[in-house]
Protein backbone atom coordinates (compact mmCIF):
# COMPACT_ATOMS: atom_id res chain seq x y z
CA UNK A 1 0.00 0.00 0.00
CA UNK A 2 1.34 3.44 -0.89
CA UNK A 3 1.40 5.68 2.15
CA UNK A 4 -0.85 8.70 1.82
CA UNK A 5 1.00 12.02 1.92
CA UNK A 6 -1.82 13.72 3.86
CA UNK A 7 -2.71 11.10 6.43
CA UNK A 8 -1.30 9.40 9.46
CA UNK A 9 -1.49 5.65 8.99
CA UNK A 10 -1.03 2.88 11.55
CA UNK A 11 -0.96 -0.54 9.90
CA UNK A 12 -1.41 -3.45 12.27
CA UNK A 13 1.04 -1.94 14.77
CA UNK A 14 2.05 -3.81 17.92
CA UNK A 15 4.58 -2.83 20.53
CA UNK A 16 5.81 -5.08 23.32
CA UNK A 17 8.17 -4.01 26.08
CA UNK A 18 9.71 -7.40 26.68
CA UNK A 19 6.68 -9.45 27.61
CA UNK A 20 4.57 -6.43 28.52
CA UNK A 21 2.03 -5.29 25.97
CA UNK A 22 2.23 -1.65 24.93
CA UNK A 23 -0.28 -1.63 22.10
CA UNK A 24 -1.59 -4.53 20.06
CA UNK A 25 -2.62 -4.76 16.41
CA UNK A 26 -3.54 -1.12 16.09
CA UNK A 27 -4.74 0.05 12.70
CA UNK A 28 -6.25 3.43 11.94
CA UNK A 29 -5.97 6.33 9.56
CA UNK A 30 -6.11 9.93 10.67
CA UNK A 31 -7.08 12.84 8.46
CA UNK A 32 -6.17 16.48 9.14
CA UNK A 33 -7.96 18.12 12.06
CA UNK A 34 -7.94 17.53 15.79
CA UNK A 35 -7.80 13.90 16.84
CA UNK A 36 -7.87 12.95 20.49
CA UNK A 37 -6.40 9.76 21.87
CA UNK A 38 -8.41 9.10 24.98
CA UNK A 39 -7.88 6.38 27.52
CA UNK A 40 -7.11 5.76 31.16
CA UNK A 41 -3.55 5.98 32.45
CA UNK A 42 -1.46 3.12 31.11
CA UNK A 43 -3.82 2.40 28.24
CA UNK A 44 -1.22 2.96 25.51
CA UNK A 45 -1.74 6.58 24.44
CA UNK A 46 1.84 7.67 25.01
CA UNK A 47 3.09 4.48 23.37
CA UNK A 48 1.08 5.34 20.25
CA UNK A 49 2.54 8.86 20.22
CA UNK A 50 6.08 7.65 20.80
CA UNK A 51 5.65 5.14 17.99
CA UNK A 52 4.30 7.86 15.72
CA UNK A 53 7.38 10.02 16.31
CA UNK A 54 10.02 7.29 16.31
CA UNK A 55 11.02 7.50 19.97
CA UNK A 56 10.23 3.79 20.07
CA UNK A 57 10.04 1.28 17.24
CA UNK A 58 7.06 -1.00 16.59
CA UNK A 59 7.59 -4.70 17.30
CA UNK A 60 5.32 -5.31 14.33
CA UNK A 61 3.51 -3.29 11.68
CA UNK A 62 4.24 0.02 10.01
CA UNK A 63 3.52 3.69 10.66
CA UNK A 64 3.49 6.48 8.11
CA UNK A 65 3.08 10.14 8.91
CA UNK A 66 2.30 12.11 5.76
CA UNK A 67 3.93 9.25 3.87
CA UNK A 68 7.15 9.59 5.88
CA UNK A 69 8.76 7.52 8.62
CA UNK A 70 11.09 8.63 11.44
CA UNK A 71 13.88 6.76 9.65
CA UNK A 72 13.99 9.83 7.40
CA UNK A 73 14.53 12.31 10.25
CA UNK A 74 15.42 15.37 8.19
CA UNK A 75 12.16 15.36 6.22
CA UNK A 76 10.09 13.81 9.00
CA UNK A 77 10.85 16.24 11.81
CA UNK A 78 10.42 19.26 9.56
CA UNK A 79 6.78 18.23 9.39
CA UNK A 80 6.28 16.88 12.90
CA UNK A 81 6.35 18.60 16.28
CA UNK A 82 5.99 16.54 19.46
CA UNK A 83 5.30 17.95 22.90
CA UNK A 84 6.04 14.99 25.16
CA UNK A 85 4.89 14.40 28.70
CA UNK A 86 8.47 14.14 30.02
CA UNK A 87 8.82 17.06 32.41
CA UNK A 88 12.58 17.37 32.15
CA UNK A 89 14.85 19.88 30.46
CA UNK A 90 18.53 20.22 29.58
CA UNK A 91 20.45 21.50 32.58
CA UNK A 92 20.72 25.27 32.82
CA UNK A 93 18.69 26.02 29.70
CA UNK A 94 16.56 29.16 29.40
CA UNK A 95 13.15 29.19 27.78
CA UNK A 96 14.58 31.07 24.79
CA UNK A 97 17.51 28.69 24.25
CA UNK A 98 15.21 25.72 24.61
CA UNK A 99 13.39 26.83 21.46
CA UNK A 100 16.17 28.62 19.58
CA UNK A 101 18.80 25.84 19.41
CA UNK A 102 16.53 23.11 18.03
CA UNK A 103 15.51 25.59 15.33
CA UNK A 104 19.18 26.03 14.45
CA UNK A 105 19.43 22.25 14.15
CA UNK A 106 16.54 22.45 11.66
CA UNK A 107 18.93 24.46 9.51
CA UNK A 108 17.44 27.91 10.13
CA UNK A 109 19.96 30.77 10.10
CA UNK A 110 20.29 32.86 13.26
CA UNK A 111 17.86 35.63 12.20
CA UNK A 112 15.17 33.25 11.05
CA UNK A 113 15.57 31.04 14.13
CA UNK A 114 15.36 34.09 16.41
CA UNK A 115 12.21 35.27 14.61
CA UNK A 116 10.53 31.87 14.87
CA UNK A 117 11.55 31.62 18.53
CA UNK A 118 9.96 34.97 19.35
CA UNK A 119 6.83 34.02 17.45
CA UNK A 120 6.50 30.66 19.25
CA UNK A 121 7.05 32.31 22.63
CA UNK A 122 4.32 34.84 21.83
CA UNK A 123 1.87 32.15 20.75
CA UNK A 124 2.48 30.16 23.92
CA UNK A 125 2.30 33.26 26.12
CA UNK A 126 5.87 32.80 27.34
CA UNK A 127 7.61 35.85 25.86
CA UNK A 128 7.88 37.66 29.20
CA UNK A 129 9.77 34.87 30.94
CA UNK A 130 11.76 33.52 28.02
CA UNK A 131 15.15 34.65 29.33
CA UNK A 132 14.65 32.94 32.69
CA UNK A 133 16.00 29.47 33.35
CA UNK A 134 13.43 26.73 32.81
CA UNK A 135 14.39 25.21 36.18
CA UNK A 136 12.61 28.17 37.82
CA UNK A 137 9.37 27.77 35.86
CA UNK A 138 6.09 26.54 37.31
CA UNK A 139 4.58 23.29 36.00
CA UNK A 140 2.20 25.19 33.72
CA UNK A 141 5.03 27.32 32.33
CA UNK A 142 7.12 24.23 31.64
CA UNK A 143 4.17 22.73 29.82
CA UNK A 144 3.79 25.86 27.70
CA UNK A 145 7.48 26.17 26.86
CA UNK A 146 7.42 22.57 25.60
CA UNK A 147 4.39 23.44 23.53
CA UNK A 148 6.21 26.49 22.16
CA UNK A 149 9.14 24.30 21.12
CA UNK A 150 6.83 21.83 19.40
CA UNK A 151 5.10 24.51 17.30
CA UNK A 152 8.11 26.76 16.65
CA UNK A 153 9.03 25.30 13.24
CA UNK A 154 5.40 25.37 12.01
CA UNK A 155 4.90 21.60 11.75
CA UNK A 156 2.10 20.06 9.71
CA UNK A 157 1.58 17.41 12.38
CA UNK A 158 1.50 18.46 16.01
CA UNK A 159 1.53 15.64 18.55
CA UNK A 160 0.67 16.66 22.12
CA UNK A 161 0.83 14.27 25.03
CA UNK A 162 -1.54 15.44 27.78
CA UNK A 163 -0.98 19.09 26.78
CA UNK A 164 -3.52 20.52 29.21
CA UNK A 165 -2.00 18.94 32.30
CA UNK A 166 -0.96 21.48 34.88
CA UNK A 167 -2.44 24.47 33.06
CA UNK A 168 -4.63 26.99 34.85
CA UNK A 169 -8.08 27.66 33.30
CA UNK A 170 -6.88 30.73 31.42
CA UNK A 171 -3.84 28.98 29.92
CA UNK A 172 -6.01 25.96 29.18
CA UNK A 173 -8.47 28.09 27.20
CA UNK A 174 -5.61 29.79 25.35
CA UNK A 175 -4.01 26.44 24.50
CA UNK A 176 -7.28 25.02 23.23
CA UNK A 177 -7.78 28.11 21.06
CA UNK A 178 -4.26 27.62 19.72
CA UNK A 179 -4.91 23.96 18.86
CA UNK A 180 -8.11 24.93 17.07
CA UNK A 181 -6.34 27.67 15.12
CA UNK A 182 -3.61 25.23 14.05
CA UNK A 183 -6.16 22.61 13.00
CA UNK A 184 -8.09 25.21 10.98
CA UNK A 185 -4.98 25.69 8.88
CA UNK A 186 -5.46 22.13 7.63
CA UNK A 187 -2.92 20.56 9.93
CA UNK A 188 -3.02 17.44 12.07
CA UNK A 189 -3.27 17.97 15.81
CA UNK A 190 -3.10 14.77 17.84
CA UNK A 191 -3.93 15.25 21.51
CA UNK A 192 -3.89 12.65 24.25
CA UNK A 193 -5.95 12.89 27.39
CA UNK A 194 -7.37 10.61 30.02
CA UNK A 195 -10.35 12.91 30.43
CA UNK A 196 -12.85 12.58 27.61
CA UNK A 197 -14.71 15.75 28.54
CA UNK A 198 -11.50 17.76 28.31
CA UNK A 199 -11.03 17.10 24.61
CA UNK A 200 -14.64 16.36 23.73
CA UNK A 201 -15.47 19.92 22.65
CA UNK A 202 -12.49 20.51 20.40
CA UNK A 203 -11.96 17.15 18.73
CA UNK A 204 -13.01 16.30 15.20
CA UNK A 205 -12.57 12.64 16.02
CA UNK A 206 -11.47 10.47 18.90
CA UNK A 207 -9.59 7.23 19.25
CA UNK A 208 -10.47 5.47 22.49
CA UNK A 209 -7.67 3.31 23.79
CA UNK A 210 -7.84 0.73 26.55
CA UNK A 211 -5.24 -1.82 27.67
CA UNK A 212 -3.26 -1.42 24.47
CA UNK A 213 -6.22 -1.83 22.12
CA UNK A 214 -8.16 0.74 20.13
CA UNK A 215 -11.69 0.16 21.41
CA UNK A 216 -13.54 2.85 19.50
CA UNK A 217 -12.63 5.29 16.82
CA UNK A 218 -14.55 7.84 14.87
CA UNK A 219 -16.26 11.19 14.82
CA UNK A 220 -16.78 12.64 18.24
CA UNK A 221 -20.59 12.74 17.96
CA UNK A 222 -20.74 8.99 17.38
CA UNK A 223 -18.69 8.30 20.48
CA UNK A 224 -20.71 10.86 22.43
CA UNK A 225 -23.88 9.01 21.46
CA UNK A 226 -22.43 5.74 22.67
CA UNK A 227 -21.53 7.43 25.92
CA UNK A 228 -25.01 8.92 26.27
CA UNK A 229 -26.65 5.54 25.68
CA UNK A 230 -24.41 3.89 28.21
CA UNK A 231 -26.43 3.07 31.38
CA UNK A 232 -25.12 4.99 34.36
CA UNK A 233 -24.48 3.35 37.72
CA UNK A 234 -25.67 5.07 40.88
CA UNK A 235 -24.80 3.87 44.35
CA UNK A 236 -27.34 4.63 47.10
CA UNK A 237 -26.47 3.89 50.73
CA UNK A 238 -29.77 3.63 52.58
CA UNK A 239 -31.69 1.96 55.37
CA UNK A 240 -34.29 -0.02 53.43
CA UNK A 241 -32.47 -1.31 50.38
CA UNK A 242 -35.06 -3.89 49.32
CA UNK A 243 -37.80 -1.27 49.18
CA UNK A 244 -35.71 1.10 47.12
CA UNK A 245 -34.71 -1.70 44.74
CA UNK A 246 -38.36 -2.68 44.25
CA UNK A 247 -39.35 0.92 43.51
CA UNK A 248 -36.49 1.37 41.11
CA UNK A 249 -37.45 -1.75 39.17
CA UNK A 250 -40.79 -0.24 38.35
CA UNK A 251 -39.08 2.40 36.23
CA UNK A 252 -38.53 1.58 32.52
CA UNK A 253 -35.12 3.19 32.31
CA UNK A 254 -33.69 1.17 35.21
CA UNK A 255 -31.70 -1.74 33.75
CA UNK A 256 -30.56 -3.26 37.02
CA UNK A 257 -30.97 -2.70 40.77
CA UNK A 258 -28.64 -4.75 42.92
CA UNK A 259 -28.78 -4.85 46.73
CA UNK A 260 -25.31 -4.53 48.21
CA UNK A 261 -23.82 -7.46 50.09
CA UNK A 262 -24.11 -5.69 53.42
CA UNK A 263 -27.78 -4.95 52.72
CA UNK A 264 -27.17 -1.27 53.40
CA UNK A 265 -27.61 0.07 49.89
CA UNK A 266 -28.49 -0.45 46.25
CA UNK A 267 -26.48 -0.22 43.07
CA UNK A 268 -28.76 1.00 40.29
CA UNK A 269 -28.00 1.01 36.55
CA UNK A 270 -30.20 3.44 34.69
CA UNK A 271 -30.45 5.03 31.26
CA UNK A 272 -32.01 8.18 32.75
CA UNK A 273 -30.29 9.31 35.90
CA UNK A 274 -32.43 12.45 36.24
CA UNK A 275 -35.63 10.45 36.42
CA UNK A 276 -34.11 8.13 38.98
CA UNK A 277 -33.05 11.05 41.18
CA UNK A 278 -36.66 12.37 41.04
CA UNK A 279 -37.93 8.98 42.20
CA UNK A 280 -35.37 8.90 44.96
CA UNK A 281 -36.49 12.35 46.19
CA UNK A 282 -40.07 11.15 46.26
CA UNK A 283 -39.22 8.03 48.25
CA UNK A 284 -37.09 9.95 50.72
CA UNK A 285 -39.71 12.66 51.27
CA UNK A 286 -42.30 9.90 51.80
CA UNK A 287 -40.18 8.61 54.67
CA UNK A 288 -40.06 5.09 53.24
CA UNK A 289 -36.28 4.99 53.00
CA UNK A 290 -33.58 6.82 54.92
CA UNK A 291 -30.73 7.73 52.56
CA UNK A 292 -27.18 8.14 53.88
CA UNK A 293 -25.36 8.83 50.63
CA UNK A 294 -25.91 8.95 46.88
CA UNK A 295 -23.04 8.87 44.42
CA UNK A 296 -22.59 8.11 40.74
CA UNK A 297 -20.52 4.92 40.66
CA UNK A 298 -19.14 5.30 37.15
CA UNK A 299 -19.16 8.96 36.27
CA UNK A 300 -15.71 8.78 34.73
CA UNK A 301 -14.21 7.85 31.44
CA UNK A 302 -12.94 4.50 32.74
CA UNK A 303 -16.47 3.17 32.97
CA UNK A 304 -17.10 4.22 29.41
CA UNK A 305 -14.11 2.18 28.30
CA UNK A 306 -15.38 -0.72 30.38
CA UNK A 307 -18.63 -0.42 28.54
CA UNK A 308 -17.01 -0.09 25.14
CA UNK A 309 -14.59 -2.98 25.53
CA UNK A 310 -17.29 -5.32 26.78
CA UNK A 311 -17.73 -7.25 30.00
CA UNK A 312 -15.02 -9.79 29.25
CA UNK A 313 -12.39 -7.11 29.02
CA UNK A 314 -11.37 -8.07 25.50
CA UNK A 315 -11.16 -5.74 22.57
CA UNK A 316 -14.37 -4.67 20.91
Amino acid sequence: MTPDAHQIVFENVSKFYGEVLGVNKVSFTLKPGITSLVGPNGSGKTTLMNLMTGLIRPSQGAIFVLGLTPQQPIEFFRHVGYCTQFDSFPTGTTGYDFIYWPLRLHGFAHDQAAKLTDEALQRAGMAQVARRKVAGYSKGMRQRIRLAQAIAHHPSVLVLDEPLNGLDPMARAESIALFEAIAKQGMHVIISSHILEEVDRISDRVVLVSSGYVVAEGQIREVRKEVRDHPMQILVRCSNAARLAAAAFELDHVVEAKILNDGQGVLVRTRDAEQFYLLLNKIVSGGLVEVDAVAPADDDVDSIYQYLIGSDGGPA
Binding site: L55, E75, F77, P102
Partner: peptide, 13 residues
Protein backbone atom coordinates in the same frame (compact mmCIF):
# COMPACT_ATOMS: atom_id res chain seq x y z
CA UNK B 1 18.30 13.17 33.06
CA UNK B 2 15.44 12.26 30.69
CA UNK B 3 16.41 14.75 28.02
CA UNK B 4 17.60 12.51 25.20
CA UNK B 5 14.22 12.64 23.44
CA UNK B 6 14.84 16.29 22.57
CA UNK B 7 17.83 15.16 20.49
CA UNK B 8 15.74 12.50 18.78
CA UNK B 9 12.89 14.87 17.87
CA UNK B 10 14.86 17.25 15.67
CA UNK B 11 15.69 16.77 11.98
CA UNK B 12 19.14 15.40 12.71
CA UNK B 13 20.33 11.99 11.58
Amino acid sequence: ERTLHYQFLVPVR
